[in-house]
Design a protein around this nucleic acid. Structure first.
Lengths: 335, 335
DNA sequence: ATAGATTACTCAAACGTTTACGGTACGATT
DNA sequence: AATCGTACCGTAAACGTTTGAGTAATCTAT
């Protein structure tokens, strides 16, 4: 059970362990002949390089930290999957940490990852700005955010254009004839949700309709939150003909509450989401929504991070990808 | 940007770096007075212990590897979330690797994780037994499987009782009056799916009905697989009154195909799943299914693994948890 | 044949910790 | 006052690898 090291194979091969190191790491300072001989012995002895020791001297681990609010939200778990697959192709492994939508925990795992000597961090921030204490952490390790324009951290992020996305959504509902549109969102102290709300509000102003906003006290965009909040909403009188949710998961919760309240979608009220998670495409859900190009976000965020790891002096980047309308059957035209 | 080390704080504090190490690691061989003094200096200088160096000498990393076929399946992403949260509480971080339902990739990332010196591995195997080459890997690091009774690896696993689960499902459908029940499953060369199929077959025999089995050529239990396979199925004549799927995601795909074929569930045909993912509870899906106690599976698997890490000679364990029927509205009594 | 260049290897330091061992100082015990 | 014990801290080795500097052998050019 004792692991076999460079020294062990060096002893067997009758060379110094520096030579073995060069053989396995593909250094040119070694003859093809001895390389093959040594590699054969390595295989026979079952040698696996100890990447911890390697990290020790090379001062890089090829490990990336990922901080994500939740894995129960398909938007995030699919993003995580894409990130992991793409990272591994580039030679990196992912250390995944769940912040559970907890601001303090988020910072705690961040410094934990720094102690782990990760080469970089990808973070989907919970929100709850300001993030004063975050700068002390981001100064220690290259970081990119998957979230638009973090306040105090205007650089190194990739995101969909949340502002424009909500404008598209509001304009779409307007074009269907809706004039009373409820914006239904998570607690909006994250820039992402602030921008989404802002896009909605700007459209209202441009279109000359009065905004109606209902916001959760939770930052969690979960089905449960949407369900309970919508339950309260439906139990009271309401004039809106459409509900625009800041996340598909919220919309799915709203739909569930509507169902139980006997309110039909889209007949009685129209419903829109934001994210375009895969479940929204199911015929039973069939949710009209705004697409986030998750795969492109994943690859771009990773490229951005790796660039910054290679050259810490590289100029900071930002990438805002275009959202797009996914028209399905949860909204109906209003006569 | 140069990280501050033990030596740096030792220099400032005017002590040897061994003393600083003792101060931060909470060793008793140091006076409370100097400990406080040193810890204060550590904080001032922004010292973070380098866990790589620590791992080097302690010969353990407090990192666990997790190999999962997919994160797009909510069953697995929720399991992953539970594992991560529970592991972190126990002082471990998770290195998550997606095997993408690829048998070779699965083995590849396993040895990659070994090179990473993980203290243990949790694996949700893809299947495709036999797993000859796996034993060489499991011999190198404590491993637990979340999958029942891996052939050749009869130990160290936690799972729901898949056999019994499918029996419960089949018996339930029988009790509703169904006599022609289609078993709709993923490619079944994994023990898990073999057992599920076995449970179905045994119930058929016991109940005196003839089994109907339709199996995918993919091991992936995804919505897409269920959708395309069911599409073909529905396009041909069929006599079954109920479909029993080996996974909720398959059932959701079947439901989608049924919808498009104009077949109503449960009116025209009853549908059951297996897993009880959270989406199955949505009123629009409302899928009758067999519950897997994921949270308990996560904690038990982790406990089992940690036990084995602490004492490699500990006797191997297995834990088979009881499945339970979750009755919803996707099945109807016949007449 | 000899100097210089090239090749293929060895030596040893370094990465940042932990920890067994040794040593010093001081209080307590006789 | 001599001895012992204890508490505290320093010294140095070790973990397994990479890599620059050094060295011996071989080759090329003169």
């Amino acid at each position: 059970m004792a692991p076999v090291t460079l020294k062990d194979v060096a002893k067997v091969a009758g060379v110094s362990y520096a030579t073995v190191s060069r053989a396995v790491s593909g250094s040119p300072e070694i003859s093809e002949q001895t390389r093959r001989r040594i590699l054969k012995i390595c295989k026979e002895m079952g040698y696996t390089p100890n990447s911890i020791a390697r990290s020790m001297v090379k001062r890089c681990t090829n490990i990336l930290g990922l901080i994500v609010p939740s894995l129960n939200n398909p938007f995030m778990s699919e993003l995580t999957a894409d990130l992991e697959i793409y990272a591994r192709r580039r030679g990196y492994n992912l250390m995944v940490c769940n912040s559970s939508y907890d601001h303090d925990l988020e910072l705690e795992v961040f410094s934990l990852l720094i102690g782990r000597q990760v080469d970089g961090v990808i973070m989907i921030p919970v929100g709850h700005e300001p993030y004063e204490s975050l700068s002390a952490l981001t100064a220690q390790v290259p970081t990119v955010f998957i979230s638009e324009n973090m306040q105090d951290y205007p650089e190194n992020y990739v995101s969909v254009d949340n502002y424009r996305g909500m404008q598209i959504a509001a304009e779409y509902l307007y074009s269907l004839g809706h004039r009373e549109i409820l914006y239904f969102g998570a607690r909006s102290d994250s820039k992402t949700h602030e921008l989404r709300l802002g896009g909605y509000l700007s459209s209202c102003e441009k279109l000359g309709i009065t905004p109606h906003v209902l916001r959760s006290s939770y930052s969690r965009s979960s089905r449960e939150v949407g369900y309970t909040l919508a339950g309260e909403y439906f139990s009271k009188p309401h004039s809106e003909t459409a509900i625009l949710c800041s996340a598909d998961m919220l919309a799915i919760g709203v739909k569930q509450a509507a169902y139980e309240a006997g309110i039909r979608i889209p007949k009685d009220i129209s419903l829109m989401g934001f994210d375009n998670i895969s479940f929204s495409a199911l015929p039973e859900i069939d949710l009209t929504t705004i697409n986030q190009p998750t795969q492109q976000m994943a690859t771009s965020a990773l490229d951005m991070l790796l660039d910054h790891i290679r050259d810490p002096e590289a100029e900071t980047g930002r990438l805002i990808l275009p959202p797009s309308l996914i028209e399905r059957k949860s909204c109906r035209p209003l006569k």
